[in-house]
């Protein structure tokens, strides 16, 4: 049975016992999926009904769990999404028993910012919104636009988080569709961060100044983050104390990103929703990954793998293994 059919069957089985099952449905065009809240069996027909199937399932449904606390929710998760669920449970932001998790072996999702860049650079039809037909066959994605067909390799337009993903199968699930994908040979070399660090400090500063200068402070990055917990008490909106100016200041916009990054250190699972959600395509995930690597190196800890683990920055050891105390 095809993956979609297996998942639909599981959703239908889970549905009677929950308030709703959250997954992905077709959005307004062939390339865009939208979160789908399935409450009745007929809603399940719309599950992954777009031509991209699970390759288009970009949103992280774990985001919606805290606001639905108190209700029993079914959740279809990719590997990365499942780590968000684990982290939310580890921090007591949700109750594990309120969620029925449906996992599947994820083979990666599309990055529409990447596709946008590719189209703009090489093709007459230069926007995802100009694409009129989509056909995903094996490792290739064919797009029709302006009467012409363009073909991309799946890997070229896949989100960067996917080829380096060490947990493509849900790390936690109550039911699992399909056969687990092997991933023990996959490593994250953090080459994106290393490349940034090879830049001189001045160049790096200019890079961020350039990137952040187009931020419109829409805070989609913050609101798309399943682990951003302050919500309407955000440092970015607080007037008293007045941490950040309301003036159009690139430095303060960058400062906000640094605040988000630090609040997420050791909690961020690298789901990449912050960056995906940014309408201006600002690569804010780099900041979070940089601290993610630091936490992994220093505390041998990766967020979202164990509901019983304590995030290292939410606790302390009298003697940290890798932090040398001063000798005096």
């Amino acid at each position: 049975m095809a993956l979609r059919e297996q998942l639909k069957k599981m959703i239908l089985e889970v549905l009677p016992g929950v308030d709703c099952v959250i997954g992905w449905g077709a959005g307004y065009d062939a390339l865009h999926a939208a979160p789908l809240f399935m409450r009745a069996p007929e809603d399940v027909e719309r599950f992954l009904s777009g031509p991209l199937g699970a390759f288009g399932a970009v949103q992280n449904p774990a985001l919606f769990l805290p606001e639905l606390a108190g209700k029993k929710i079914g959740l279809v998760v990719k590997g990365c999404d499942s780590r968000s669920v684990v982290q939310l449970a580890a921090e007591n932001l949700i109750k594990r028993e309120e969620v029925v998790i449906i996992g599947f072996p994820c083979e990666g999702v599309i990055d529409l910012h990447k596709l946008r860049n590719k189209l703009a650079a090489h093709f007459v039809v230069n926007e995802p919104g100009g694409v009129t037909a989509v056909n995903l066959a094996g490792d290739h994605l064919a797009l029709t636009a302006g009467g012409q067909e363009y073909t991309f390799k799946r890997d070229e337009i896949m989100a960067d988080k996917c080829p380096r993903c060490r947990e493509p199968n849900a790390v936690i699930s109550d039911c699992f569709a399909g056969i687990e994908r092997r991933a023990d040979n996959i490593a994250d070399d953090y080459e994106d961060i290393a490349a940034l660090e090879r830049m001189s400090l001045e160049d790096r500063f200019r890079f961020w100044e350039q990137e952040m200068s187009r931020c419109v402070r829409c805070y989609a990055c913050r609101n798309a983050c399943p682990l951003c917990v302050c919500r309407d008490h955000c440092a970015g909106a607080s007037r008293d104390p007045h941490w950040l100016t309301q003036a159009d200041s690139t430095r303060d916009k960058f400062m906000f990103q640094l605040i988000h990054t630090l609040h997420l250190a050791g909690r961020c699972t690298g789901c990449g929703e912050c960056q995906r959600a940014c309408p201006l395509g600002i690569p804010v995930l780099l900041l979070k990954r940089s601290l993610g690597r630091a936490v992994e190196e220093m505390f041998d800890y990766r967020a979202g793998l164990d509901t019983e683990a304590k995030p290292p920055l939410l606790t302390f050891r009298v003697e940290e293994r890798k932090i040398k105390e001063r000798e005096w």
Binding site: F64, R222, A277
Partner: peptide, 13 residues
């Protein structure tokens, strides 16, 4: 509004 994140992307742009 079920899928809405309450961000300001729509209104800012």
């Amino acid at each position: 509004s079920a899928g809405c994140l309450s961000c300001g992307a729509c209104t800012c742009l």
